[in-house]
């Protein structure tokens, strides 16, 4: 994968959040196969890149999912969450949740949205910008 993640901002995110150990390329590939089998879009490339830095992030009540994780731990698995909570087939993929909001990737539009039942809080095609917002990076 190309280096498409701004390392300075990623460093700041890692400093200000709880982050899991990096995921492996194999875990990401396996997750994509599983997602596809269940009718979900594959992980967006920049999100996969973040997973190679931290296989799950958490700040306060906000959680960004990881891959290949067992249920019941401190970080949730993106496949398990979507398979258990979302209808398939789907063109969107939930990548994390906060108290009342979700971080969702809309594959067709290649957009990330932070939204709740009340509506959209923000949207962007820049994952890092969305992560800074979602994880309340100061």
């Amino acid at each position: 994968m190309d280096n498409i993640i701004n390392q300075n901002i990623m460093k700041k995110i890692k400093e200000q959040t709880g982050c899991n150990a990096p995921a492996s390329e194999a875990q990401i590939k396996l997750c994509n196969v599983k997602l596809k089998q269940h009718g979900f879009p594959e992980l967006p490339e920049d999100f996969a890149k973040v997973l190679l830095e931290a296989n799950g992030l958490t700040a306060d009540d906000a959680n960004i999912f990881g891959v290949g994780l067992e249920e019941g731990g401190w970080f949730d698995d993106v496949c398990d969450y979507n398979i258990q909570h979302c209808q398939a087939p789907s063109k969107k993929l939930v990548l994390g949740y906060d108290d009342d909001t979700h971080l969702i990737y809309y594959a067709e539009e290649k957009l990330y949205r932070v939204e709740s039942e009340m509506g959209k809080d923000m949207e962007s095609d820049d994952l890092i910008e969305v992560l800074e917002y979602f994880l309340r990076i100061q």
Binding site: E15, G18, A59, D60, W74
Partner: peptide, 23 residues
């Protein structure tokens, strides 16, 4: 005033969370 140990850091920015606390 936080209950999220996974994001807790010491004064030097080192994570306080231990792998054996995962469950």
């Amino acid at each position: 005033g936080s209950t999220n140990l996974a994001e807790a850091k010491d004064d030097k920015g080192k994570t306080l969370f231990k792998p054996e606390w995962s469950w």
